[in-house]
């Protein structure tokens, strides 16, 4: 059992016998009311989405899950194809269960994945990842306003706002939770 206030994105819960993974969590305080969390939960197997509002002090049934390493191979537009690195067993998982992950995962990279039995519940992307800048607009000459930004596109296709000095071919660190630029990486 865990307290609902401790549920985070990625926490796996058993609700009415079904596994659900938390995909969104927001703290809410009704006026003159105690603290609640508004959760969006997803059953990775069926895709069913559940909206739950729990008191932060409520108990929830957390399920025991295993973390295993999986290598990301490719996606075919519908599914992610991955391989368990310990058994070389391949698996497929619908892309819609992991929205926008195609912009965060790099081909050939190994990720920790959360399984409940043989069901893939979560792909853990580190919160800070270095990406190669694949496309960048040229900075406008003379634009010296402090804090000016522009968009760049990473090798994975992720579009992020970053400072104007970032050039194509450079590496940048990104916060994958907020999808925000953190810093330039010299290598």
């Amino acid at each position: 059992m865990i307290k609902a206030g401790q549920i985070e994105r990625g926490t796996a819960l058993l609700i009415k016998g079904q596994p659900f993974v938390c995909i969104e969590r927001e703290f809410v305080n009704p006026g003159k009311g105690s603290a609640f969390v508004r959760l969006k939960l997803k059953n990775p197997g069926t895709g069913q989405i559940l909206a739950e509002t729990m008191k932060t002090q409520d108990n929830a049934e957390e399920i025991t899950v295993d973390d295993r390493d999986c290598q990301y191979l490719y996606n075919d537009g519908d599914s992610f194809h991955m391989m368990l690195t310990d058994t070389y067993e391949q698996l497929e998982t619908p892309m819609e269960n992991f929205p926008d992950f195609e912009y965060l995962m790099k081909d050939g990279e190994t990720y920790r994945c959360t399984f409940w039995g043989d069901q893939l519940l979560d792909i853990q992307i580190p919160s800070k990842v270095v990406y190669l800048v694949a496309e960048a607009e040229e900075a406008i000459k003379g634009d010296t306003v402090q804090g000016a930004t522009k968009y760049v596109v990473t090798e994975t296709g992720l579009k992020v706002r970053c400072p104007i000095f970032i050039k194509k071919g450079e590496k940048i660190r990104i916060n994958t939770d907020t999808r925000e630029y953190l810093e330039r990486v010299n290598s």
Binding site: A4, P30, S34, F36, R38, E52, T53, D58
Partner: peptide, 25 residues
């Protein structure tokens, strides 16, 4: 369809669950 509810909680708590899940958003 609210599942995380406690049979013995206060009226106010149940009200808040319903309000926050279906009304406020």
């Amino acid at each position: 369809g609210i599942t995380s509810i406690n049979r013995y909680e206060s009226w106010e708590s149940t009200f808040n669950r319903i309000f926050l899940t279906f009304v406020e958003p």
